[in-house]
Protein backbone atom coordinates (compact mmCIF):
# COMPACT_ATOMS: atom_id res chain seq x y z
CA UNK A 1 0.00 0.00 0.00
CA UNK A 2 1.08 3.57 -0.70
CA UNK A 3 2.38 5.32 2.40
CA UNK A 4 0.06 7.78 4.16
CA UNK A 5 0.62 11.38 3.07
CA UNK A 6 0.06 14.29 5.44
CA UNK A 7 0.35 18.04 5.00
CA UNK A 8 1.54 20.06 8.01
CA UNK A 9 0.93 23.81 8.01
CA UNK A 10 0.62 26.85 10.25
CA UNK A 11 -1.98 29.56 9.61
CA UNK A 12 -1.67 33.31 9.26
CA UNK A 13 1.24 35.03 10.99
CA UNK A 14 1.62 32.56 13.86
CA UNK A 15 5.40 32.41 14.29
CA UNK A 16 5.53 29.39 16.63
CA UNK A 17 6.89 26.38 14.85
CA UNK A 18 8.00 23.88 17.50
CA UNK A 19 4.73 21.96 17.53
CA UNK A 20 4.50 21.67 13.74
CA UNK A 21 8.11 20.49 13.41
CA UNK A 22 7.73 17.99 16.23
CA UNK A 23 4.54 16.52 14.78
CA UNK A 24 6.13 16.36 11.31
CA UNK A 25 9.02 14.40 12.80
CA UNK A 26 6.74 12.08 14.77
CA UNK A 27 4.78 11.27 11.60
CA UNK A 28 7.90 10.78 9.48
CA UNK A 29 9.34 8.43 12.08
CA UNK A 30 6.11 6.44 11.82
CA UNK A 31 6.51 6.11 8.04
CA UNK A 32 4.12 8.88 7.01
CA UNK A 33 5.16 11.02 4.03
CA UNK A 34 5.02 14.59 5.32
CA UNK A 35 4.66 17.64 3.10
CA UNK A 36 5.83 20.40 5.40
CA UNK A 37 4.33 23.72 4.37
CA UNK A 38 5.61 25.54 7.45
CA UNK A 39 4.56 29.00 8.58
CA UNK A 40 2.60 31.81 6.91
CA UNK A 41 -0.30 30.25 5.05
CA UNK A 42 -3.83 31.37 4.31
CA UNK A 43 -6.50 28.67 3.89
CA UNK A 44 -6.35 28.91 0.11
CA UNK A 45 -2.71 27.87 -0.06
CA UNK A 46 -3.22 24.97 2.32
CA UNK A 47 -6.26 23.70 0.41
CA UNK A 48 -4.57 24.03 -2.98
CA UNK A 49 -1.44 22.25 -1.78
CA UNK A 50 -3.50 19.50 -0.15
CA UNK A 51 -5.21 18.79 -3.47
CA UNK A 52 -2.07 19.13 -5.61
CA UNK A 53 -0.11 16.84 -3.33
CA UNK A 54 -3.00 14.41 -2.94
CA UNK A 55 -2.54 14.17 0.80
CA UNK A 56 -4.66 11.97 3.06
CA UNK A 57 -4.75 14.38 5.99
CA UNK A 58 -4.18 18.09 6.57
CA UNK A 59 -2.64 18.91 9.95
CA UNK A 60 -2.84 22.50 11.21
CA UNK A 61 -0.66 23.54 14.13
CA UNK A 62 -2.09 26.42 16.20
CA UNK A 63 -0.24 28.48 18.75
CA UNK A 64 -2.22 31.65 18.22
CA UNK A 65 -5.95 32.22 17.91
CA UNK A 66 -5.79 33.03 14.23
CA UNK A 67 -7.10 29.54 13.43
CA UNK A 68 -10.51 30.56 14.81
CA UNK A 69 -10.95 32.98 11.94
CA UNK A 70 -9.39 30.83 9.22
CA UNK A 71 -10.75 27.38 9.95
CA UNK A 72 -14.19 27.83 8.36
CA UNK A 73 -12.66 28.88 5.07
CA UNK A 74 -10.18 26.01 5.14
CA UNK A 75 -12.94 23.46 5.77
CA UNK A 76 -15.14 25.01 3.08
CA UNK A 77 -12.39 25.01 0.48
CA UNK A 78 -11.51 21.39 1.18
CA UNK A 79 -15.19 20.36 1.17
CA UNK A 80 -15.57 21.88 -2.30
CA UNK A 81 -12.93 19.48 -3.61
CA UNK A 82 -13.81 15.93 -4.58
CA UNK A 83 -10.88 14.56 -2.62
CA UNK A 84 -12.46 14.78 0.89
CA UNK A 85 -9.28 15.53 2.80
CA UNK A 86 -9.89 15.53 6.57
CA UNK A 87 -8.44 18.29 8.75
CA UNK A 88 -6.71 17.68 12.08
CA UNK A 89 -5.98 20.61 14.38
CA UNK A 90 -3.49 20.64 17.24
CA UNK A 91 -1.82 23.11 19.55
CA UNK A 92 -1.26 24.39 23.06
CA UNK A 93 -3.85 27.18 22.85
CA UNK A 94 -6.73 24.78 22.25
CA UNK A 95 -8.97 24.25 25.24
CA UNK A 96 -11.66 21.61 25.74
CA UNK A 97 -14.43 23.97 24.64
CA UNK A 98 -12.38 24.96 21.58
CA UNK A 99 -12.02 21.27 20.79
CA UNK A 100 -15.76 20.72 20.91
CA UNK A 101 -16.38 23.77 18.73
CA UNK A 102 -13.89 22.55 16.13
CA UNK A 103 -15.41 19.08 16.02
CA UNK A 104 -18.87 20.61 15.52
CA UNK A 105 -17.52 22.56 12.54
CA UNK A 106 -16.30 19.37 10.93
CA UNK A 107 -12.66 19.11 12.00
CA UNK A 108 -11.87 15.39 12.05
CA UNK A 109 -9.70 15.35 15.18
CA UNK A 110 -8.29 17.84 17.66
CA UNK A 111 -5.18 17.51 19.78
CA UNK A 112 -4.71 19.80 22.75
CA UNK A 113 -1.53 20.25 24.76
CA UNK A 114 -0.02 17.01 25.98
CA UNK A 115 -1.21 14.80 23.11
CA UNK A 116 0.82 11.61 22.89
CA UNK A 117 2.80 10.64 19.79
CA UNK A 118 1.01 7.28 19.47
CA UNK A 119 -2.36 9.00 19.60
CA UNK A 120 -1.41 11.40 16.81
CA UNK A 121 0.04 8.69 14.57
CA UNK A 122 -2.95 6.38 15.20
CA UNK A 123 -5.46 9.09 14.35
CA UNK A 124 -3.68 10.13 11.15
CA UNK A 125 -3.47 6.52 9.97
CA UNK A 126 -7.11 5.89 10.82
CA UNK A 127 -8.29 9.01 8.95
CA UNK A 128 -6.14 8.08 5.95
CA UNK A 129 -7.64 4.58 5.90
CA UNK A 130 -11.15 5.99 6.05
CA UNK A 131 -10.48 8.40 3.20
CA UNK A 132 -8.91 5.72 1.01
CA UNK A 133 -11.81 3.37 1.69
CA UNK A 134 -14.29 6.08 0.67
CA UNK A 135 -12.35 6.86 -2.49
CA UNK A 136 -12.23 3.30 -3.77
CA UNK A 137 -16.00 2.92 -3.48
Amino acid sequence: MEPVRALIAILGLDQHETGALAVARILRDAGVEVIYLGRFNLPERIATTAVDEDVDVVGVSCHSWEYIYHIDELLRRLAEEPTHVPVVVGGSVITESDRQALIRKGVAAVFGPGAQAAEIVGTVRHLADLRRATRTI
Partner: peptide
Protein backbone atom coordinates in the same frame (compact mmCIF):
# COMPACT_ATOMS: atom_id res chain seq x y z
CA UNK B 1 1.96 41.76 17.76
CA UNK B 2 2.65 39.20 15.03
CA UNK B 3 2.18 41.66 12.13
CA UNK B 4 4.46 44.25 13.78
CA UNK B 5 7.24 41.73 14.38
CA UNK B 6 6.83 40.52 10.79
CA UNK B 7 7.07 44.15 9.52
CA UNK B 8 3.57 44.05 8.00
CA UNK B 9 0.76 46.59 8.35
CA UNK B 10 -2.50 45.69 10.14
CA UNK B 11 -4.46 45.92 6.87
CA UNK B 12 -2.29 43.29 5.18
CA UNK B 13 -4.43 40.26 4.24
CA UNK B 14 -2.23 37.92 6.28
CA UNK B 15 -2.35 40.21 9.31
CA UNK B 16 -6.07 40.87 9.79
CA UNK B 17 -6.71 38.13 12.35
CA UNK B 18 -3.54 38.70 14.32
CA UNK B 19 -3.82 42.42 14.99
CA UNK B 20 -3.30 43.17 18.66
CA UNK B 21 -3.76 39.60 19.92
CA UNK B 22 -0.18 38.63 20.84
Amino acid sequence: DAPTTACLDPDHPYALNAVGTQ
